[in-house]
Design a protein around this nucleic acid. Structure first.
Lengths: 197, 197
DNA sequence: TGCGTTCTTTATCGTTCGATCTAAAATGCG
DNA sequence: CGCATTTTAGATCGAACGATAAAGAACGCA
């Protein structure tokens, strides 16, 4: 019927992820985005709508490839090890992140809330997915007696979630292994604490 | 000698704090800042240099009035209570923050790192002040046997710092009392854990 | 092969940005 | 009372922004 698209939409979206991730929403100009994606500005608008719509699709792609993929990989491990390895990977990624880009999801919490009230909803949803993952780990660990029942699974999952967000914030400023691992050590110690006598 | 300044510099700086806090660095335009401060654009440049210099002074003023003031108020309390009350105040402020402005210091972590490499230094310094406050509390508590010695004071302070940053991030998205207090509960439980047998 | 549709490129729209210039107004000093 | 100095307000600078218009190019289908 009509002329087919010349560029690979997925590849272009991956480039948009990199550009938004590195520069933030405001910092990424439509011109810079289009250049990174290898297309003209008008093609960007034609294919993705506008800058905000492109950002939302880029963020969704990032979440899918980074967050949900990670949850999927650790889901099957023994609970304590899943949590421990999860944080180990976060720390490793933070230390390897030389451009200090941080986590695009966490960045979006601080970028989107101001302009885009409705854009918070998918972000909240992803954060709840992470919380739910932690909670499944804790509940499984409590059932198997490898994680303390001195605190509710609900609260422990909340703590793990806040710890994760705290580490990603801290790593942005001070990407030091000893500091970040020092955060996790007491948390892992808490998980294995015996029920209070 | 010369014409005296017509506006109160401190009052203008307070207005700049409110404007930057509410809109972020990028989001606050020089025109909007000048309007909020009740002065003309040229007066802003004359009195404060440029936008970045004004931001740095505004952030320093915020830190002085919010962060350092808080540390000073809780410093004299019994260690466990200081920590507990500290988080209680953070949660109360987060819940009362209807515009979802969050903490200007935490916001600056995500705003400044990209553009302004040198601006990170004072931010890092303030974060270290907060960490040092937590560490003093933990060490005092350990000396008085009200805080566990199962973990080092260094690591516990790191955990408290990450928890604080995590709560402020989480509150930005989901300002729910039960969620935020649920984060703190296991932390306070950990502090009072007995030394491992 | 021509038609309708969609994509691509280029140029450009109006707005807003941070920053500066100009000139008038307001002071203290001699 | 001028003179020197600084602060005001208002106009304006060039650059960059997001977004669009116009025109030609490339396809499927008749």
């Amino acid at each position: 019927m009509a002329r087919p698209r010349e560029f690979d939409e997925d590849a272009a979206l991956d480039a948009a992820v990199r550009c938004f991730w590195a520069n933030g929403y405001e910092g990424a100009s439509v011109r810079g985005l289009a250049a990174s994606m290898g297309i003209a500005g008008a093609s960007l608008y034609n294919a993705f709508g506008d800058k905000q719509a492109l950002y939302h699709r880029a963020l969704a792609r990032y979440v899918e490839q980074s967050v949900q993929d990670r949850i999927g990989r650790f889901e099957r491990l023994p609970p304590r090890q899943a949590i421990s390895d999860f944080f180990e990977e976060i720390i490793a990624r933070s230390l390897a992140d030389e451009q200090r880009q941080g986590c695009m999801l966490v960045n979006s919490v601080f970028e989107c809330s101001l302009h885009d009230e409705a854009a918070q909803i998918p972000i909240i949803d992803v954060v709840k997915q992470i919380e739910a993952f932690f909670r499944r780990c804790v509940e499984a660990g409590q059932a198997g007696r490898t994680i303390t029942s001195a605190q509710t699974a609900e609260d422990l999952a909340r703590l793990l979630l806040a710890t994760l967000l705290g580490i990603r914030t801290l790593a942005r400023l001070r990407p030091e292994r000893e500091l970040l691992e020092g955060v996790v050590r007491p948390v892992m110690g808490l998980l294995s604490a015996p029920t209070r006598p």
